[in-house]
Write a protein that binds this DNA or RNA. Structure first.
Lengths: 378, 378
DNA sequence: CCTCGATCTGAATCTCGAT
DNA sequence: GATCGAGATTCAGATCGAG
């Protein structure tokens, strides 16, 4: 192994050891503040940067689940900033170093949530980075909104930028297309959050890091934007997902991490030969989700307008479609399935085949309209 | 029809016609510059703002499809800005007016792409708007990346903000859940781009506006964040999608549009849009808005007589109803909520769904008896 | 061995009206 | 403005123990 984890005295080291600017610590964890440590690296030396900076979540008090449990919030000191201005200043500083270290044809990836990504995006543009894509990581299993106050926050955003408009960056188009069943890889990626065996745990079984990213995410990024042997820098290394995936894919890496505990975890993780966990590699192909169509979608799209009267095949019952895709009959209200079941006194009912729309010359089941919708939008 | 389309001389009008600040032009198109026209509207007068500002696309030369056709790019004058700073200045100005016009409990939606949404998001936060969600519109039929140089840009982003952290905004949680097959509506929405019959065409068959938004998008937004009768402002009205959907859903609207051609198109389009039937406009009622029933009322009315024994769904605990509508168990006494919480050791508890009455063949939750009472007395 | 149910968890800006 | 109390609120998976 070729791991370095130094306990540095930043001020001294930066100023007095320019030597390090020549020799690059490959496949190594640099322990220390990310800006200080980046400052010690030479100009234009890395091919790609992946950065997962603090999100500045600004959470309030405790949040409880409906059944009584308490949500284990991200309340670590490293995510606390005094103000938006302080966060901006921090972001500007590390972006400045990142830009200096990055090769002219290299690219940078930054991940964030709505709390911080608009600050980061604007500052990237201010620093003359050129946005190539913004990528949406759609979580297949996000935490719900327990209080019913907003839309489920079910995604995070990644920004992918080159150093300038004219830069000739790496994009392995064919690899991405192959990874996506021979369709162009889109800007929305569906992936589960990091859990199960992939999630690094402490001795007490609790998660080692509150925001560990899934390897599948880094896998796709490294595969898309680097060549084998390229050097990848991760200035917010955490549990070392970037290093682990880089190693697996034959890329070189440098990680910067301040916290002692995370450095240890990352070192062990990368050192241990990970059995290729197929499940961690898998990304859910977008096609599989297409068959699921909410009835409300047909209402929104005007295929089954609100106010439409529905009936069953034998015209024994009728119900009316409301604006939100629910149904009302004389005695019941709810989804197409629930109302169908209630009217029949049955435990369950497939509303798609039960309910029909009157058309010229007869009745057409909702299922047929769903197929029509899929055909038009699939 | 009640449409206004004035040809204004902006500078004069703003300064000399404060009268308009009193009377609100409802269901009307105001023709003119968006900042000037907004300046003429009173403080805190609209419930929601939907804004689809210029994206500042910064497109280079013509883009050609593989088979030779030229892509019909957005190259209109209104999408051109000299610099990021100019775009920021413009954005700051219209956001300032938007904030002034918006009611304190109102919300604003802004849609954009990666070209502009990071500017807009940061400036929204700078103006002390509070981001509630960022929403990803996933296009089921995006334009492919013809050159194979990037990921297919398959989404746009919407920001939903209140005026402050503490503001009590409207969110029709139940309606959104109904629209999504009884699952919480997530922050990623799959919808086709506006095409086919919905796309407004000119006399020559070409599209009337380069970036017309689908009605389904506005439908979901208006249904989620407004009540019937609420007033919605769209300062970049274009072909009037916001007005058309607002009218369909029984919301009032004001549109601002500078271009003569778009004003005409929007006016005709909205005139031919029919409002939904009053009953079809309905959505499932939010529990929070139903009339409150004190548990004591059910005791008084004899629906749950004093002395009744209650139990939870798993029959782990029991309690007895007292004459005043309070409960006693072995160890606790108080309201149905307090006793339920205390027995479970939970911070809180909804006694209506926690406690059940034994009936023939099983258990019936108090909530069901409450509904029964409401049906009989509501 | 498998199945079923109970339990736990994840980057979360998570209530509101009456007094 | 602060306080108090009613009462509204969860999805997809992984894990583990019982049968």
């Amino acid at each position: 192994m070729n791991l370095i984890a130094r306990i540095a005295e930043p001020q001294k080291v930066v100023r007095r050891a320019p030597a390090l600017k020549q020799e690059l610590p490959l496949d190594a964890i640099l322990q220390g503040d990310c800006i200080t440590e980046m400052a010690r690296l030479p100009d234009k030396c890395v091919d790609m940067i992946f950065a997962d900076p603090p999100y500045n979540l600004q959470l309030g008090g405790d949040l409880f689940r409906p059944e009584g449990g308490r949500v284990d919030a991200v309340d670590d000191e490293w995510d606390k900033f005094d103000s938006l201005a302080a966060y901006d200043g921090f972001t500007r500083d590390w972006l400045e170093q990142a830009r200096r270290i990055l090769k002219d044809d290299g690219t940078i990836w930054v991940i964030g949530s709505y709390h911080n990504i608009y600050r980061v995006g604007a500052l990237l543009q201010d620093a003359e980075f050129w946005i190539l894509n913004d990528i949406v990581w759609r979580k297949s299993n996000p935490m719900p909104n327990f209080r019913g106050t907003r839309f489920t926050n079910a995604h995070e955003t990644l920004l992918w930028c080159s150093k300038s408009e004219k830069a000739r960056y790496t994009f392995n188009y064919r690899a991405m297309k192959a990874l996506n069943d021979d369709l162009q890889m889109r800007s929305d990626w569906l992936m589960p959050i990091c859990s199960g065996g992939e999630r690094v745990k402490g001795d007490d079984g609790s998660k080692a890091h509150p925001t560990q990213k899934p390897e599948a995410l880094l896998y796709r990024i490294l595969l898309a934007c680097t060549k084998p042997g390229n050097l990848v820098l991760d200035p917010f290394f955490g549990t070392g997902t970037t290093g682990a995936v880089a190693r697996r894919l034959g890329r070189r890496w440098i990680g910067i991490e301040r916290e002692d505990a995370y450095v240890k975890v990352a070192r062990d993780r990368i050192a241990s030969t990970l059995p290729l966990d197929e499940s961690a590699m898998k990304t859910v192909p977008d096609k599989r989700e297409q068959p699921r169509v909410a009835f409300g979608t047909l209402v929104e799209s005007g295929l089954v307008p609100a106010g439409t009267s529905l009936t069953d095949a034998k015209r024994r019952w009728t119900a009316t479609v409301l604006a939100d895709g629910s149904l009302t009959s004389d005695s019941h209200a709810g989804s197409i399935h629930k109302v169908g079941a209630a009217l029949q006194g049955a435990p369950s009912c497939n509303g798609w085949t039960f309910w029909h729309v009157a058309v010229e010359g007869g009745l057409k089941p909702l299922d047929q309209l769903r197929q029509q919708h899929l055909g038009a939008n699939g």
